[in-house]
Design a protein around this nucleic acid. Structure first.
Length: 205
DNA sequence: GTAAAGTCGCGATTACATCA
DNA sequence: ATGATGTAATCGCGACTTTA
């Protein structure tokens, strides 16, 4: 805080006890208190009008912030002298600037994550439709197998085990998340490994 | 060694200027 | 005139350092 303003506040708090209660903390009052509202008359009395920094001042501050976000006191004093500001104002500016920078970074990060999430959703849709397509192909192939095997055994045997095998091995249809929690139950073997009962597949590859 | 005082940075909030 | 927005300033707090 500007020392002049502080002096004014101290004086006013002496003259008008109860107005600036935050200056003399109450005994045992550790919790955050509601801050007093400064009215225009008070601001006029103490000359505490808020003023915008000039473009040149902001430019120089921005340049310094670009070099280094933190502000050691030596640099702060030097900068304050250069800008014709109170060192406290320079510190406050850096404080607020760091907060703005942090907010901006957070927003950028959020946008990046959102974009990544959206493209993942698209990818998921693609994969799901691919799965549906492959399931259709599989079902067609099984129908064809059944047709061929019934052609081959036609008139020889009516209780061929092959007619029920594929049904017995088929996992129940569980919808979109069929594999969740069933990784062990429906183990998918690596390529070229021998699968009992799956010899037929070699006929088609 | 330690309690009190001082300093600094941060998050949250307020006050004020500016603009649509 | 008024609500939205941006930003300077304030407050309260914790962490750390300095001083007596």
């Amino acid at each position: 805080m500007n020392h002049k303003v502080e002096d004014h506040l101290a004086l006013i708090s002496q003259l008008y006890p109860g107005v600036y209660t935050q200056i003399v903390p109450q005994q045992g009052e550790s919790k955050r208190r509601r801050r007093r509202k400064k009215n225009k008359a008070e601001a006029d009395i103490i000359g505490a009008k808020k003023r915008k920094l000039s473009e040149e001042q902001v430019n120089l501050l921005e340049m310094n912030f670009g070099n280094e976000h933190k502000l050691e006191s030596e640099r702060k004093d030097k900068l304050a002298l250069e800008l014709g500001l109170d060192p406290r104002q320079v510190a406050v500016w850096f404080q607020n600037r760091r907060a703005r920078w942090k907010n901006k970074k957070l927003e950028e990060e959020y946008t990046k994550l959102k974009t990544a999430h959206e493209s993942m959703v698209v990818e998921k849709c693609k994969l799901e439709s691919e799965v549906l397509k492959l399931k259709g192909q599989l079902s067609e192939a099984e129908k064809e197998i059944q047709r061929l095997s019934s052609d081959r055994v036609d008139g020889v045997s009516t209780n061929s085990p092959s007619s029920s095998l594929s049904m017995a091995r088929d996992p129940p249809f569980l919808g979109e998340f069929a594999m969740e929690g069933y990784e062990d139950a429906f183990y998918i073997p690596p390529e070229n490994s021998y699968i009992p009962g799956m010899e037929w597949i070699n006929l088609y590859v």
